[in-house]
Amino acid sequence: MSLLQVNLPGLHLKNPIMPASGCFGFGREYSQFYDLSKLGAVIMKVATGSERFGNPTPRVAETASGMLNAIGLQNPGVEKIIENEVTFLSQYDTSIIANVAGSTIEEYEYVARTFNNTKAVHALELNISCPNVKEGGIQFGTDPKMAAKVTEIVKKASNLPVYVKLSPNVTDIVAMAKAVESAGADGLSMINTLTGMQINLASKRPIIANKTGGLSGAAIKPIAIRMIYEVKQHVHIPIIGMGGISSAEDVLEFLLAGASAVAVGTANFSNPLICSDIIDELPTTLERYGFDAVEDAIGKAVMNE
């Protein structure tokens, strides 16, 4: 048996597999399909300072090898999430990562502090990259100075390890990664979705009511791999990799590129048991490619250069 454990700041993972934020709700629905204790961690749906209703529908469209979404950060607000959802997830033997967003720096700070006070979550994932919120999110995610600032403030507001989730909608991903590393980020999480659009030929209008949406799924995997590979060469903090993962082979590819753990998003929609299936298959896959442990594979492709 290969060793699946990975240790990251604040996270002692029994395996490197976790569902990605927004693709797994708060776990309840998927707990019908398998025991969530099997997961390395769960990254919860985003939390903002107060409740958000999100964008008008349609909010999703299908693309070649992927999908577009513009949910618009719909969530019940940090307090209700702690009261109802964190309590629910706490019954499982898995780490809980809270995805944090806001329209202002103050809102990020408030959400981070509120999670910190509960002691029930193990880490924060700072969502500075959601393309679907128009007020501010996008600015934080594409400007290294703003990204560093929000990271710094959130670090001060809480003692929890902070993983900053990077947007791929930038020309220089390494500059973003370095900026948040210097600002105190404990880790990176990458990538979020790429902004896209699909037009309906019959109605001659974009399908998604918000017009643009974030592209996810298999279509974005090569972009995620490239970005992780580039960033790994320039930063020292660990990376949680994501973008189009749907098999144990995909996981290994992310590990080789430099990810220390991975998140699976869109693939949950095609197969609600995908995370569980990947965890079952990972040992054999590692073995097939000559690895005794997950940790031995991390960044191998970068080191081989």
Binding site: C23, F24, K45, G54, R59, P272
Partner: peptide
Amino acid sequence: RMGCGVGACFACV
């Protein structure tokens, strides 16, 4: 239009 179809993704509200 649905995403997950199980109530997790908030696509079809």
